[in-house]
């Protein structure tokens, strides 16, 4: 990436303008499904219709225009972050009062990928890809950390890149649907879910926060403040914790758990016995 990334395409901006206006006019709808009720709101329409328009077979957008769109995405979410910041300022004392939850939810963000991801990855038979796939949510800064330590074409690098690609394509949509389903279970307070939203990725965080605000409109302000706060901490600490804690911890757990949970190993042990 030595060349200046291009951010210019009137076509892309025009499409976004149309997507935004159409999506806002459609408004909020609820969709009852077997597993629960799913909340549909403008952001999701813009994402879904945009994705369909971007399918290469339809030939609506050129590859270059998709790349421009991705480049714009990379900086556009900062306006959203700035807006959240302006909501946090007046509520700063409220945030400080929730210092303990803010720190502990951060531990949840950092360890959550490993706690849930690592054992399942080993159980379904993944090898060293597990380390790259589960040490973090694998956004750009995390990819840089992995390729620095293992090279990007190593198994660890491939694991991280795979999660990155899936997250880029489906992360926001998936987390929004998951939020709908979990919120409707009524186990968690909206503020806890709001903190959960601060995953450290602009578009995913926007999607989760948007879902929560649509479900709990009367608490919109506080939800935005707490998800903004959680996201700020994730961004602030994320990279350092990743290098010094998450990655070594994932490697350590992989070496400990792979002999117990890993598929290949179990077969090998069986073979030796027979």
């Amino acid at each position: 990436m030595s060349a200046k990334p291009s951010m210019f395409s009137w076509k892309v901006h025009l499409f976004v303008l149309i997507l935004v206006c159409v999506s806002e006019l459609i408004g909020v709808h609820e969709l009852g499904l077997g597993i629960g009720t799913i909340t549909l709101f403008p952001m999701l329409y813009a994402l879904i219709i945009g994705s369909i328009m971007s399918i290469p077979k339809l030939k609506i957008l050129k590859k270059k225009e998709m790349q421009i769109s991705a480049n714009i995405l990379g900086i556009s979410f900062m306006l959203f972050i700035a807006k959240l910041g302006t909501m946090m300022g007046p509520q700063l004392m409220e945030l400080f009062k929730s210092g303990i939850p803010l720190l502990l939810q951060e531990a949840g963000h950092i360890l959550g990928t490993i706690i849930l991801g690592l054992p399942i990855a080993l159980l379904i038979g993944m090898k060293r890809e597990t380390i790259g796939a589960t040490f973090s949510i694998d956004r750009e800064p995390n990819l840089a950390i992995i390729s620095e330590k293992y090279r990007s074409d190593s198994p660890e690098g491939r694991g991280a890149l795979g999660v990155y690609v899936c997250g880029t394509l489906f992360g926001a949509l998936y987390l929004s649907l998951l939020t709908s389903v979990i919120a409707k279970l009524d186990i968690f307070h909206p503020l806890s879910l709001a903190m959960g939203a601060g995953v450290g990725s602009g578009s995913m965080m926007a999607a989760v926060t948007g879902t929560l605000v649509t479900i709990y409109p009367e608490q919109a302000g506080t939800i935005a403040v707490f998800s903004g706060g959680a996201n700020l901490i994730t961004t602030l600490l994320g990279t350092y914790i990743c290098v010094f804690i998450s990655l070594p911890l994932t490697e350590f757990l992989y070496n400990k758990l792979n002999p117990i949970l890993g598929r290949k190993h179990r077969n090998e042990i069986k073979n030796i016995k027979t």
Binding site: V12, F15, V16, L19, V20, S23, E24, P42, M43, L44, A46, L47, I48, I49, G50, S51, I52, M53, S54, I55, P56, L61, K63, E65, M66, Q67, S69, A70, I72, L73, S76, F77, L79, F80, G117, I120, A121, I124, G125, M126, E129, T130, A133, T134, G159, G162, V163, V165, C166, G167, T168, L169, F170, G171, A172, G202, S203, A206, A207, G210
Partner: peptide
């Protein structure tokens, strides 16, 4: 937030080929 996700949507096709090459395990784990 809506325009951000519209840009995200319009960039969807960019990574689609890479996605098709992924194994099912990595998709599940994501």
């Amino acid at each position: 937030a809506t325009p951000i996700l519209a840009y995200a949507g319009l960039s969807f096709g960019k990574d689609l080929n890479q996605f098709k090459k992924l194994g099912w395990r990595i998709v599940v784990i994501s």
